[in-house]
């Protein structure tokens, strides 16, 4: 089992990275190459400073705050800890942010907050009609998988299952095309595998909003030109 998973993590890892890099580039170019055409801004629009207003809209989600405060809180917390944990994953490349004794609890706390947020996302999709009635099966699937993924990640952090030197050595070996076998821990392998699946999801699924938004919000907030 562990051997099979180990090879899978390596091979699938290459595929996922390839798709992630080229897929994302493809999607971004797909938007960028098209003309904007019709001028379909929404008022009130800034007279200048478009960039800062777009950034404000993207990171503070002011309109979601008016519409749905619960989702706003969940989304803000979820994404903060998401960014934190993404940052912490740079440990894979040997980047260290501080002594393990302080980093691990921070990572674990982030994980727990993310868990709560994901549970809320799931509850919301199941409990709120206006969201439930339009959600496809895949949406639910990815959310539940996220729950599993975040759960395992938090466990790995909290109990320091695999030492950072060990997994970063593995990751670097893969990235330098001299793959070695990963640390033989089942939970670690699951986490790595699901993580690779999420690279696909980021490109083809909803998280592509992280990039698409910079285009769409810019269209709406184009400065006034009357």
């Amino acid at each position: 089992m562990i051997t099979v998973l180990s090879y899978l993590v390596i091979i699938f890892g290459y595929i996922a990275l390839f798709v992630f890099i080229f897929g994302l580039t493809y999607r971004i170019l797909g938007w960028a190459r098209l003309p904007t055409g019709f001028y379909w801004g929404l008022y009130p629009r800034p007279t200048k400073w478009t960039f800062s207003s777009v950034i404000w809209k993207i990171f503070a989600l002011p309109t979601l705050f008016t519409t749905d405060k619960q989702l706003w809180i969940a989304a803000i917390f979820f994404h903060i800890v998401l960014f934190m944990s993404v940052a912490l994953h740079f440990e894979l490349l040997g980047v260290h942010f501080g002594p393990e004794a302080t980093i691990d609890p921070i990572g674990a706390c982030a994980g727990i907050i993310a868990l709560i947020a994901v549970v809320y996302y799931i509850q919301r999709r199941l409990g709120i009609t206006r969201s439930k009635e339009i959600s496809a099966l895949a949406t639910h699937f990815w959310l539940w998988l996220l729950l599993v993924q975040v759960g395992i990640g938090t466990y790995l952090r909290a109990f320091d299952v695999v030492a950072p030197e060990v997994y970063s050595a593995f990751a670097i070996s893969v990235l330098t095309f001299k793959p070695t076998l990963p640390p033989p821990d089942l939970w670690f392998l699951f986490h790595a595998f699901i993580g690779e699946m999420y690279l696909f999801y980021i490109v083809f699924g909803k998280p592509v909003h992280s990039i698409g938004q910079f285009f769409s919000q810019y269209i709406l907030a184009k400065p006034e030109r009357r």
């Binding site: 938007w31 969201s131 959600s135 909003h209 269209i219």
Partner: peptide
């Protein structure tokens, strides 16, 4: 779609909706 007079936004709006339902509330 690319031939529409406003293709970029159409493509974006096709790609980006997460079906969160916030719009229905409004």
């Amino acid at each position: 779609i690319d031939k529409l007079p406003y293709p970029r936004l159409v493509k974006l709006y096709l790609d980006l909706c997460s079906y969160c339902g916030a719009c229905a509330e409004e």
